[in-house]
Simulated scan of single mutants.
Amino acid sequence: MADELNVIGFDAIPTPPEGFRSGFVGIVGRPNVGKSTLMNALIGQKIAITSPVAQTTRNRLRGILSTPQAQIIFVDTPGIHKPQHELGKILVQNARVAIASVDLTLLVVDGSVTAGRGDEFIVELLRHNRANVVLGINKTDQQSEQAEALNQSYEVLAAEQGWPLFKFSALTGEGLEPLLQGLIERLEPGPYYYPPDLVTDQPERFIMGELIREQILLHTRQEVPHSVAISIDRVEEDKTITRILSTVHVERDSQKGILIGKQGSMMKTIGAAAREQIQKLIMGKVYLEVFVKVVPKWRQSRNQLNDFGYRIEE
């Protein structure tokens, strides 16, 4: 199953041609600027969940793009924001670690609004880290008649730091090719780090859990979205179907009630939508069973965070 997906399963890594470039590119920015949508668009396949809810990305997810010219390992990071709980602190710290560990940083900003304090904070963070930075203005498809004024606020930031600037829409694809070429040109000559047909280094179970969480983000807009953690408890495969047992962990009984819904209607909707996405992932039939469990204040507990896979990366 995994080999068909090109998600895991390391085959022989080829010798790169002359002039081949490679490296790690960190995608950073404020929450909800379109970082995950951008990575999916560049990879050409959905590996990161997207949502209109801010702070969707939690884990440092790697997406791998191999072209005849280069191999880019994109590192999608949590949105940099002021943390409100222990989970938030871990996410922001992991984003900072990513900035320090990549070859090139792509700072993504929301081109539908002017530059704000959040953007300026990240610019200052990157400047102090002496990062090699490219500034990308996303959401150009959402710019109004004031596009020139919106872009200018970011152009000033880029000019002050001497950073190259690209304008694009991750949603429509406009401007992505120049961006990609600009990133490749700024990478050093290097080897294949992964087999060319691989699109992510994350295991299938992780992506299954993320696809379930995505549907919760899309269908519940109250207190639930940021209070859930997903565990994939069991995966059983046979020739005709893959059976998946998962648990959604929430912090309060009220959140459990919202997730389950009247006579289980909400969980049926979430489960059906998640099953459809997972079937696309594994290219096969799926039976998905989802339970909901209350774990009070799990976002404040380092032990619980570790159990759910959230820890400070090095």
Rank of each mutant, 00 (worst) to 15 (best):
E4W: 05
V7M: 14
G9C: 07
P14K: 10
P14V: 08
E18K: 15
F20S: 08
G23A: 07
T37V: 13
T37A: 15
T37S: 15
L38I: 12
M39V: 15
A41C: 06
A41G: 05
G44S: 12
I47K: 03
I49Q: 00
A54I: 03
A54T: 10
T56K: 01
N59D: 06
G63Q: 03
S66T: 15
Q69E: 13
Q71K: 06
H81E: 08
I90C: 03
L91S: 05
V92I: 04
V92Q: 00
R96W: 07
I99V: 15
S101N: 15
T105R: 01
L107S: 07
R117F: 01
D119P: 07
E120P: 06
F121C: 00
I122S: 08
R127K: 14
N129T: 04
N129A: 15
A131Y: 09
V133K: 02
G136L: 14
G136Y: 06
K139S: 02
K139M: 02
D141Y: 04
Q146I: 01
A147S: 09
A149N: 13
S153A: 07
S153N: 09
Q161Y: 05
P164K: 04
F166H: 15
A170C: 13
L171W: 00
T172I: 07
G173W: 08
L176W: 04
E177D: 12
L180T: 05
Q181L: 15
R186S: 04
R186K: 06
P189E: 05
G190I: 10
G190K: 10
L198I: 15
L198Y: 08
T200P: 08
Q202V: 11
E204G: 10
F206Q: 01
F206W: 02
L211A: 01
I212R: 00
I212P: 01
R213C: 05
L217D: 05
H219K: 12
T220N: 08
Q222L: 09
S227L: 06
V228Y: 01
A229Q: 09
R234H: 14
V235D: 04
E237F: 12
T240M: 13
R243L: 06
L245Q: 11
S246R: 04
S246Y: 05
H249E: 02
H249M: 08
E251A: 10
D253A: 12
I258T: 12
I260K: 13
I270N: 02
A273H: 05
Q277A: 15
Q277T: 09
I282D: 02
M283W: 11
G284Q: 15
L288N: 00
E289D: 11
F291T: 09
K297N: 15
W298Y: 04
W298T: 04
R299M: 09
N303R: 14
Q304H: 14
L305Q: 02
N306H: 13
D307L: 14
Y310A: 03
I312Q: 10
E314G: 13
